[in-house]
Nucleic acid binder design. Structure first.
Lengths: 118, 118
DNA sequence: TTGACATATTCCTATATCAGAATATAATAA
DNA sequence: TTATTATATTCTGATATAGGAATATGTCAA
């Protein structure tokens, strides 16, 4: 078996940095045409088009035709599965930061202690 | 150019469902040996080992040797880049849900109206 | 119809998976 | 040492990219 298709789900689609850039752009600037996206991110039009297709297939963007343009907008709800999954670990990195904090404070105390001993 | 390596970053590593399962397992059960992971997720030992290697390379797990075992624990801080990135879109999906809510309420009002007219 | 512009698709190549099977390495016990 | 258990690595094959280049499709205007 090979790697899962990029169009499998949001996780796979968003693993590609360019597609994350596209989503960030659409979030910031709202609805944009393919050429707008291509120009803003300095990629060629077919590349933009292909990335947008992947994003559309996994439901992360919506399209609408306006004359000869195709206007893409973000569908941020598609990111919720990722947010939900990763949020479940929030507690864990807070805890490990707590532990690190505790450790650093202990270390500092110890060094002050050693300092006094010299 | 081909797809970026799974070991490029947390985004790519976590695109694989089995690796997400492994992280969830380690988050729930704490430090586990390779065989523990393999048995819990019903995968063969080499597969577990290989997935853990990817997770280790991107800093999502830490290892420690204990006798002939290798104990893996989650390093949840590695997930923060994903959390940070996706959280930036939280506002957007809330807004679109608001718009959907508004739309549904308008629709309901309209239907009640139509009902009275009949 | 023809031309111009916007977008999508196809073909190509290099690369990297993922699971399975087999095997290698490592640590411990008898 | 030899056997056993735990883990890691290598090899194979099917599959799927991502970007570049070329081209097809679509829409509108004159």
């Amino acid at each position: 078996m090979a790697r899962a298709a990029t169009t499998t789900d949001a996780f796979n689609a968003v693993a590609e940095p360019r597609r994350r850039q596209i989503l960030a752009l659409l979030a910031r600037d709202g609805e944009r045409s393919v050429n707008d996206v291509a120009r803003s991110l300095r990629v060629r039009q077919p590349q933009a088009s292909k990335h947008l297709r992947v994003l559309r297939k996994v439901g992360l963007v919506r399209v609408r035709s306006a004359g000869q343009q195709r206007l893409y907008q973000i569908n941020a709800e598609g990111l919720k599965p990722i947010h939900d999954w990763v949020s479940a670990f929030e507690r864990h990195w807070n805890e490990s930061l707590d532990r690190l904090d505790t450790y650093l404070k202990e270390l500092q105390k110890k060094e002050q202690h050693d300092g006094r001993e010299h």
